[in-house]
């Protein structure tokens, strides 16, 4: 087994042995889903609203929220390793930097998968649509894992840069701003306010949410999926680049 394998195994084991963390990061998005689905259901009366089930519409946002929790998890895990000295333990072995990044992110991917399956099952149980069927569900799961890993790499970069769990936690509200300034609550073409619509249009999170939503509401929408996967890959590229740079600075060993 390679270094990646050993580090991934550790990351997965840690994730599985902290069910409280996994569960609590699932409950908040589901809670918000319940609030939104009941409180904002009148939005479906708007002309051109894409579906008559606000629950289905809001579920797209839920997947994205889950990924943000994964971001925090990844950032805090590495920050804890740095603060507690485990990072030095690894540095004293022939550790290769990329192996650490990939290994850490595999735990995030697992958490992303758990979350996505839960959100989907809960959503469907309460009557959400899944227009793209079983294959669509698998694609949705893949996108959820990709998004978790993409944002997880940003968290990893932050954790490696700051080496401080509190600093990582402090960035959480900033990420939530990205969520609120997206098309998470309303379709972009129905946002009346110009500046808000402009921001949601340049916010990559909008396209990721729309890709989730397309599988739920409209079935197979090639453009929405390409944009969603594209944006997630772009975030992954940026996050991995930032994490690699931060790791290089952090690994001061000779």
């Amino acid at each position: 087994m390679s270094q990646i394998g050993y580090l991934a195994q550790r990351s997965l084991t840690r994730t599985l042995r902290q069910p409280a963390v996994v569960v609590s990061s699932m409950i908040f998005p589901l809670f918000l889903l319940a609030v939104n689905a009941s409180g904002l259901s009148a939005a479906t009366d708007l002309p051109d609203f894409p579906t008559d089930s606000y629950l289905t519409f809001a579920l797209g946002l839920t997947f994205m929220q889950g990924a943000l929790f994964a971001t925090m998890g990844a950032g805090q895990a590495i920050a804890q390793d740095i603060q507690g000295g485990f990072f030095n333990r690894l540095q004293l072995t022939p550790l290769r930097g990329p192996a650490l990044i990939v290994g850490q992110l595999s735990g995030v991917a697992l958490q992303g998968a758990f979350q996505a399956v839960t959100y989907l099952l809960v959503g469907i149980a309460f009557g959400a649509d899944l227009e793209a069927g079983i294959a669509g569900a698998l694609l949705l799961l893949a996108l959820a894992m990709l998004v978790a890993v993409a944002f997880g790499s940003l968290g990893l970069a932050l954790g490696l840069r700051t080496g401080n769990g509190e600093a990582v936690q402090g960035a959480f509200p900033l990420l939530f701003v990205l969520l609120f300034l997206s098309s998470g609550a309303l379709p972009r073409d129905l946002i009346a306010n110009d500046w808000f619509q402009a921001i949601t249009t340049v916010n990559p999170v909008s396209y990721i949410i729309e890709a989730f939503r397309s599988l739920l509401i409209s079935g197979w929408d090639g453009e929405a999926l390409a944009l969603g996967f594209g944006c997630a890959l772009a975030v992954l590229a940026a996050g991995t680049f930032a994490a690699t740079a931060a790791l290089r600075t952090r690994m001061a060993r000779t």
Binding site: R10, G85, P94
Partner: peptide
């Protein structure tokens, strides 16, 4: 090297630590 913090992962067992450490080497 055994550094001051005795940096261990609280969620892993001794065997798992040993496997990881040996694996990294």
């Amino acid at each position: 090297v055994a550094l001051q913090e005795a940096a261990l992962d609280p969620f892993l067992t001794a065997h798992e630590h040993m496997r990881l450490q040996a694996g990294m080497h």
